[in-house]
Design a protein around this nucleic acid. Structure first.
Length: 198
DNA sequence: TACTTCACATTTT
DNA sequence: AAAATGTGAAGTA
């Protein structure tokens, strides 16, 4: 990754911790948990560029989302660096999974057209590809990578504290029942009763 | 019924 | 260039 376009970084405080947002003049390029991923000094981005405007809009929408006032994001996402399936899967996910809805890795893969199973009963696991894409999802939250659950159980997550954030988000959206007693160990075998998508 | 092993595409270091 | 990854399904015990 050589010199990318001007990347303006911004921070946002959420119930699940601090979130960093990076924007270009094309849209949100990255959203990550925690303070700042690498060394992003973000030296007073020129106020007036599209990137700065988008960054402010992204932070605002994220704030509204975490406040429960916003169920959908309207800001554009910059997937300029996305290759092949990556871009397709992210796009499909963004367009196919609304607020409060969940989908399985396999389902998303099939919806993205990755189910090109060979004609001899080749049980291909495109779900793994989707999982990998989610694992390195450049734009978390806005592209609802946290709404993608495994066919069995909850699935995994690479958020701040792992599945903790994912679980919080799913409960927040009402996709999972707010179980009263939750344990890290219980999370593994937690079965979302009635939350299983078709 | 529960658990272990196998399969493949893409991204990242 | 090589290894690892947020799974799914099947087979076996």
């Amino acid at each position: 990754m050589g010199a990318v376009t001007e990347l303006v970084w911004g921070c946002l405080d959420t119930p699940v911790g601090q979130v960093s947002v990076a924007c270009t003049d094309a849209g949100v390029a990255r959203v990550a948990y925690g303070p700042l991923p690498g060394a992003a000094p973000a030296p007073a981005p020129i106020p007036g560029t599209q990137a700065a405007v988008l960054l402010e809009a992204a932070v605002t929408e994220l704030g509204e989302y975490f406040a429960g006032h916003r169920k959908a994001f309207t800001i554009p996402v910059d997937l300029g660096r996305a290759h092949g399936s990556r871009r397709t899967v992210l796009s499909v996910l963004h367009d196919s999974v609304p607020f409060g809805r969940t989908i399985t890795y396999g389902g998303l893969a099939a919806r993205a057209g990755l189910d090109a199973a060979g004609p001899g009963g080749a049980a291909m696991p495109p779900a793994r590809v989707v999982g990998q894409i989610m694992a390195s999802n450049p734009v978390a939250i806005i592209v609802p990578c946290h709404r993608v659950v495994a066919g069995t159980g909850l699935g995994g997550y690479s958020g701040g504290t792992g599945t903790d954030v994912k679980h919080w988000l799913l409960v927040f959206e009402g996709a999972l029942p707010a179980t009263l007693d939750w344990d890290s160990a219980a999370l593994r075998r937690a079965q979302p009763a009635g939350a299983r998508p078709a």
